[in-house]
Design a protein around this nucleic acid. Structure first.
Lengths: 193, 193
DNA sequence: CAAAAAACCGAGTGTTCACTCAGTTTCGTT
DNA sequence: AACGAAACTGAGTGAACACTCGGTTTTTTG
């Protein structure tokens, strides 16, 4: 089971950085140090391998988020919202390849023909947006976040903003770090009661 | 010159929706109704064709934005900022393929080896962010937008947010239309003095 | 209208690709 | 040690690919 994990690991990097079609199984095998046939012994096809990568990505992201936010004390919903934003950016740096993968179009194209992809992507996004929503909901309860905003929709907008910044960082368009303080300020202004 | 334009048009759709590698010149020629050799008569390579598509996209987007905002009267900078956001979303719907293309990773990968791609992408983003910045700057002058925010950085954050929403729409993750009002509210709250 | 130039054509070429398969090695169990 | 199962191998295969090129048609021009 050692080689299977190694294949998954290298495949994640290659799929995220080169794309699906531009990653050849031959190159993947060479970089992993296994024979080409080994890849097809463990995964039924290249697409099956990508699905396995996505499943592992979902497990890891969902796990990280749930562990970070369960049984955690926050002084207010607004503070929690800020920590969620912060943690999302932190995680996107820590798991750069996996977040890059999630921003690649081929996953969403494959979603249309292979429900496995759709299910995993939905799992991830639901988990993330739910946590944003929980923070806003809590803040509206304790009065730290304005009641004039729509809970779910503003969670989506907030998520969109943070995720957009991650995309710009991944595309080397501009430095996300330099925008961190401004982003936090904007979040606070958006949500504050 | 009729066929050259036809090739560019079809190539835009294919590159945006299928990606660079997954678009074959054979298929492109068939859909355009020309011979494969004709594509290479007009463009020196597949990559050259993509660059031509990007150049046309830049011309069109920059032109649209500049024409929309030159000599236009706004009651306040805040109102202008709202109109910029609105117009960006409108244009992203009108030129769906071109905005989808701009969100595809292969452009940014090619940017690293071919400066032509980098230059065109920078032109587009500079043009867009500049207009956001102009609105904020104006608002800070007339008092409709808070002076506590950093002009350029908040323009980037604002752009990131709107562009992120377009990405979610293009990936069929959730309906951007349903979030429009919430997005505008959030923008106002972010910027308001 | 004739000659030159530009546009267009599609069969041909060499390469790369995902995937198969018949055979070999490694591992777990008794 | 013996044996069956699981893991692994890499040469082989047919399909698809970007691009070329010698030749044909269409357009421009003097």
């Amino acid at each position: 089971m050692k080689k299977k994990e190694a294949i998954l690991k290298v495949a994640t990097v290659l799929f995220a950085n080169k794309g699906f079609t531009d990653t050849s199984v031959q190159e993947l095998a060479r970089l992993t140090g296994v024979a080409e046939g080994t890849v097809f012994y463990h995964f039924k096809s290249k697409e099956g391998l990508l699905l396995a990568v996505l499943e592992q990505t979902r497990d890891e992201i969902v796990d990280q988020f749930e562990r970070f936010f369960e049984n955690r004390p926050f002084n207010s919903g607004l503070e929690m919202a800020e920590e969620v934003v912060s943690f999302y950016l932190y995680l996107a740096g820590l798991m750069e390849d996996k977040f890059l993968l999630l921003h690649r179009h081929f996953l969403y194209r494959l979603s249309e023909s292979n429900p496995g992809f759709r299910e995993n992507l939905e799992s991830i996004y639901n988990c993330l947006v739910d946590i944003f929503e929980r923070a806003i909901s809590m803040g509206q309860g304790d009065g730290s976040i304005s009641g004039e905003i729509h809970t779910r929709k503003s969670a989506l907008v907030l998520f969109t903003m943070v995720d957009g910044l991650v995309r710009f960082k991944n595309h080397n368009l501009y430095d996300a770090g330099a925008l961190f303080n401004e982003l936090m300020l904007m979040c606070r202004r958006m949500l504050q009661a």
